[in-house]
């Protein structure tokens, strides 16, 4: 672990930010608390995806599989087999990790290029959605309604509203922390080397498979856990939301807007887009359904055309120039720090 990591952890700004976020539920009306919780869900998912997609440079469109497994499998186990949702969370996370591992095996065994990887993961995601919708145990097309959240922690219940917010805050912080840690571990360095030039990485002895597989498994397990918590928060495991490849596309695009491959990039994207989208949906959703996705699409296209690396690098460079020191976090320079 590089010293930069501990330095950042000692930086009081992060702790202040976390504390401020933890105070949010005290003053927030429930509608805005809902938006804040949803934002945290996407911060968490974006950061988890970023480990593979941003740091590793592999556009995985399979993440709806993991989120869907976490949500649908854990809910189905509770409703159809009476298994505690904590156990369901762990089982789903294991299944997701295994699927992630298999995808990494396929990727390595058949030396998939970037495009093939995106296509094959999209095919898996489509199959996943079809299976969920066609399999009654997982809820089929109508989804699964979870029992009311009475705040029984041992039954994976957090009392709705505030409780769910703290759960999501924990998961978002965990996800950001894990991806930040990875960036500062040899794993992150290797992943970036592989992303920038796989042949060169192989030539200097980087174990391509081990690093890619590890990234994929970590990312899949995180996504699955977030999926279980998300389903619990919604109390309705909706296959068309949670196991649809559109979810992954949303995550990919938010991460792109924020800035791929940086620990805070996807978080920034989610912080901008989710509240914007939700408020648009709340105000105009009845009149114009789809407006918020339309705005997402517009923002994504505009950002890619204006600053292809995303907003975070742009902002960091502006700040660095203001303060007169030029070394934004997550850039190539920090890998040597």
């Amino acid at each position: 672990m590089k010293p930069a990591f501990f330095q950042a952890l000692r930086n009081p700004l992060w702790w202040l930010l976390l504390a401020a976020l933890a105070m949010l539920p005290l003053g927030l009306p429930s509608y805005y608390l809902h938006i804040a919780t949803l934002t945290l869900v996407y911060v968490a998912l974006g950061s988890a995806w970023n480990i593979v997609g941003g740091v590793g440079g592999q556009i995985s469109l399979a993440h709806s599989l993991f989120v869907g497994t976490g949500a649908m499998l854990a809910s189905a186990m509770l409703l159809n087999s009476g298994i505690n949702m904590w156990v369901g969370l762990v089982v789903a996370a294991l299944v997701s990790g295994l699927m992630g591992f298999l995808i990494a095996v396929i990727d390595f065994r058949f030396k998939l290029g970037h495009l093939s990887f995106a296509l094959i993961t999209l095919a898996f995601a489509e199959m996943g959605e079809i299976i969920v919708i066609g399999w009654d145990y997982l809820g089929g097309a109508s989804g699964l309604f979870l029992p009311r959240d009475k705040g029984d922690f041992s039954a994976f219940q957090f009392g709705g509203g505030e409780g769910a917010f703290y759960v999501m805050l924990f998961l978002a912080a965990l996800s950001v922390l894990v991806s930040f840690a990875i960036l500062n571990l040899p794993l992150g360095y290797y992943l970036r080397t592989i992303r920038d030039n796989e042949n060169a990485a192989r030539a200097i002895g980087v174990n391509i498979f081990r690093n890619k597989a590890l990234a994929m498994v970590i990312s899949a397990v995180l996504a699955s856990i977030i999926g279980t918590a998300y389903a619990r928060y919604l109390t309705f495991a909706d296959p068309y939301l949670l196991s649809s490849p559109v979810l992954t596309i949303e995550i990919v695009l938010m991460a792109t807007v924020g800035g791929l491959g940086r620990s805070m990039g996807p978080a920034l994207g989610a912080l901008l887009l989710v509240p914007l989208g939700e408020i648009l949906r709340g105000k105009l959703g009845g009149v114009l359904p789809g407006l918020h996705y339309f705005v997402y699409g517009g923002v994504v296209v505009a950002v890619i055309l204006a600053t292809p690396r995303g907003l975070l690098p742009l902002i960091q460079e502006r700040f660095a120039r203001l303060r007169g020191n030029a070394k934004p976090e997550g850039s190539v320079a920090s890998s040597g720090a």
């Binding site: 695009l253 359904p289 699409g297 994504v300 296209v301």
Partner: peptide, 23 residues
């Protein structure tokens, strides 16, 4: 630019068209 950038851009266009139609 990199192929991935074009994929991301067209995914953005996909959201625009799809939701333009929905609206």
């Amino acid at each position: 630019h990199h192929l991935l950038m074009v994929i991301q851009l067209t995914l953005g266009v996909s959201l625009l068209v799809q939701n333009g139609l929905l609206m």
